[in-house]
Design a protein around this nucleic acid. Structure first.
Lengths: 114, 114
DNA sequence: GTTGTTGTCAACCGAAAGGTTAAGGATGGT
DNA sequence: ACCATCCTTAACCTTTCGGTTGACAACAAC
């Protein structure tokens, strides 16, 4: 899981963490504020934030006792780029094209495995 | 992890599974073909394929002994839509806007926590 | 300096992830 | 009928994940 994209995807795979990111789109927030919607200890929230920070999805400042969290979108940009490579596979009736190609292959002389 | 987006992200968080999807962009392939690049038992490959299938990222047919795998891009489209909501956060110098807003808040009368 | 609030860390726990090996089901070929 | 090939399943093991509780560090307020 050492590559950045895997870390990003793993961090985003948890609904609690996605909820925190969504909250941060409205502005920076402290762990206590981020914890509000969840029936969960603050320690658990702190762990989630560490996962997000390790993935580069948030950064944290310091304001007296408070540790405000800030959304960092760079990993999301990378994710968007990655998933964009697959765009042509969900656009423009590609399934029907695939079906056509499969039919061509069935009519072939060799032993088709696909 | 019951929601579809979490299942998609968790499935994609593994580099082996992403590699399999990348291979499937070149056309359908059997488990044995998909296993080729990896130093891993076929049973492990079969498990990975089950994860991808459960997430709706592939479908599987039957051609005699072979179980050809086919890329299904719908969950990727949903993921692209989700991440697209964050687009404005990595475009157009948003960090500088945030810094400006933070400065405004520091000049405020209340006790700012963020 | 004591007290309260905020947040993190360490230790622990159960469940899930990701791999193994061994067994077996499904199909094709001889 | 038998054998080989392809693939999945079951059982198991180790590591990671997501939560808990308890201790405590940092800072503010009184």
């Amino acid at each position: 899981m050492s590559d950045a994209l895997s870390a990003t995807l793993a961090a985003l795979a948890d609904p609690t963490r996605r909820g925190m990111l969504a909250r941060l789109t409205h502005g920076d927030a402290t762990p206590t504020e981020l914890a509000a919607p969840y029936a969960m200890s603050l320690a658990a929230i702190s762990k989630h934030l560490k996962v997000l920070e390790t993935a580069g999805l948030i950064s944290r400042g310091r304001n007296s006792q408070y540790r405000p969290c800030h959304l960092e979108a760079a990993p999301l940009k990378d994710l968007s780029t990655w998933v964009g490579e697959y765009r042509r596979f969900w656009e423009n009736n590609l399934d029907q094209l695939d079906a056509y190609l499969a039919e061509l292959q069935t009519a072939d002389t060799s032993t088709p495995k696909n």
